[in-house]
Amino acid sequence: MNLNSKIYIAGHRGMVGSGIIRKLESKGYTNLITRTHNDLDLINQQAVNNFFETEKPEYVFLAAAKVGGIFANSTYPAEFIYENLMIEANVIHAAYTYGVKKLLFLGSSCIYPKFAPQPMKEEYLLTGELEVTNEAYAIAKIAGIRLCKHYNQQYGTNFMSVMPTNLYGQNDNFDLESSHVMPALIRKFHEAKIDDEPEIVIWGTGSPRREFLHVDDMADACVHLMENYDESDIGEFVNIGVGKDITIRELAELIGDIVGYEGEIVYDKSKPDGTPQKLLDVSRLNRLGWEAKIPLRNGIMQTYEWYKSEK
Rank of each mutant, 00 (worst) to 15 (best):
A47C: 06
I265D: 10
T75H: 14
L24V: 03
Q170D: 09
C222R: 01
M120I: 15
L130Q: 00
E227W: 12
R249K: 14
Y229R: 04
S207N: 11
E55M: 14
A219H: 00
T247K: 03
V60A: 08
K66R: 14
I194L: 13
G156E: 07
D41S: 13
A89W: 13
Y112I: 03
E262W: 07
K56L: 10
G235E: 14
A64E: 00
Y137V: 01
K269P: 07
K188V: 03
A136D: 00
T34P: 14
I92Q: 01
W306Y: 15
V266H: 08
A184S: 15
Y304L: 11
E227K: 11
D281E: 10
N84H: 07
P198N: 05
P198M: 06
K269T: 15
N171D: 12
Y8F: 15
R210N: 04
Y76I: 06
E191T: 05
A143E: 08
D195M: 11
V242H: 03
V242L: 06
I20E: 01
D175Y: 08
I248A: 02
K141A: 08
T275M: 14
G17V: 01
N173L: 09
L251D: 00
I246A: 03
A140S: 10
T97K: 11
L285W: 04
Y137M: 03
G260L: 13
I300T: 05
L42A: 00
A63D: 02
S74Y: 01
S270Q: 07
D230W: 08
Y96E: 11
A72M: 07
T247A: 01
K149C: 11
I87L: 12
H37V: 14
T165A: 12
I7Q: 04
